[in-house]
């Protein structure tokens, strides 16, 4: 893959804080136009990695290229091309939504019309509200508005939906999908496995400062090949069978029960199951 096709290219990234090796040789390649989710437990090195990519933090070693530029040496021209939605909510207290977006638009030569950006993130009816009156989800939308006001080629989203109610998360996901459809490359970090599954083309799992797996959500950790679990109720007891041929198993059960199988379920491991298993194995190896 050539450099032009990669929005982010990282190899052998290392970073220590005193004795603590936070990032120990991370490799990462994110294609242009892709939505890539970084997963990992707290303290795994996710945020450090992302902050190095965002140019907020200096690395100890390794090669990093973001939109063809080393973030450690990047200047204002590079910042014009990226958008960042930081972890946690930015607070602008007594300023109005419209004032904040208009102000940030001034920093960019190619900024979108602020009113249009506010519309896109669904805050039009809040444009004249002071930011401290917004709900958590609305504040996060404002963060995204500031992240996309410059029409970025690459958008960083650091735990964007923490603290959202389920409906707000769905709406937020739609917004991210729209951005992706318009060609924005997105690097997302999240704690929510369903979020990664809903949004990401590929996911990478970071644990103890290293990338332990990179794959599509459907194939992570051999999930698509994992055995299925067929469950049902018989003689008042919950029963299950682990099988590579669940259809067959259901057919046999159906014949045995003469039609409906009581409380029939067929499940494969969720992304969360695979993820937890992956982190668990890692710990056992230590």
């Amino acid at each position: 893959m050539t450099d032009e096709e990669l929005a982010i290219s990282v190899s052998g990234l290392r970073k220590s804080y005193r004795d603590n090796q936070a990032v120990a040789g991370v490799d990462l390649a994110v294609r242009r136009g892709e939505v890539f989710a970084l997963l990992g437990p707290n303290g795994a090195g996710k945020t450090t990695t992302v902050e190095i990519l965002e140019g907020f933090r200096q690395r100890d070693g390794g090669d990093v290229s973001v939109l063809g530029v080393d973030p450690a040496k990047a200047g204002a021209d590079w910042r014009k091309r990226i958008g960042i939605v930081l972890q946690g909510t930015g607070e602008f207290d007594e300023l109005k939504v419209g004032e904040v977006v208009r102000h940030f638009a001034r920093f960019y030569p190619n900024a979108s019309d602020p009113a249009e950006v506010i519309e896109r993130v669904g805050l039009s009816d809040k444009a004249n509200s002071r930011t401290h009156t917004l709900s958590g989800g609305q504040k996060r939308r404002l963060d995204v508005a500031l992240g996309i006001v410059n029409r970025p080629e690459l958008l960083f989203l650091d735990e964007p939906t923490t603290g959202f109610d389920p409906a707000a998360r769905r709406e937020f996901w739609d917004l991210i999908r729209q951005l992706s459809h318009q060609g924005t490359t997105i690097l997302l970090t999240t704690h929510y496995l369903d979020e990664a599954e809903a949004l990401a083309d590929r996911v990478g799992v970071i644990n103890r400062g290293a990338m332990v797996a990179v794959s599509t959500p459907a194939e992570l950790g051999g999930r698509h090949q994992a055995t299925a679990r067929v469950g049902w109720r018989e003689d008042g007891q919950a029963r299950f069978e682990q099988t590579d041929h669940p259809t067959d198993a259901v057919r046999r059960l159906s014949e045995r029960f003469g039609g409906e199988v009581p409380e029939l379920t067929v499940t494969r491991p969720t992304l969360e199951d695979i993820y937890l298993e992956m982190l668990g194995e890692k710990e056992e190896q230590q």
Binding site: E54, D77, I84, L86, G90, E91, F104, L146, N150
Partner: peptide, 14 residues
């Protein structure tokens, strides 16, 4: 603390 400074640093604002 509120991340306002960091947000400014994420823009090309001198």
């Amino acid at each position: 603390d509120r991340g306002v400074l960091k947000r400014y640093r994420s823009t090309p604002m001198p």
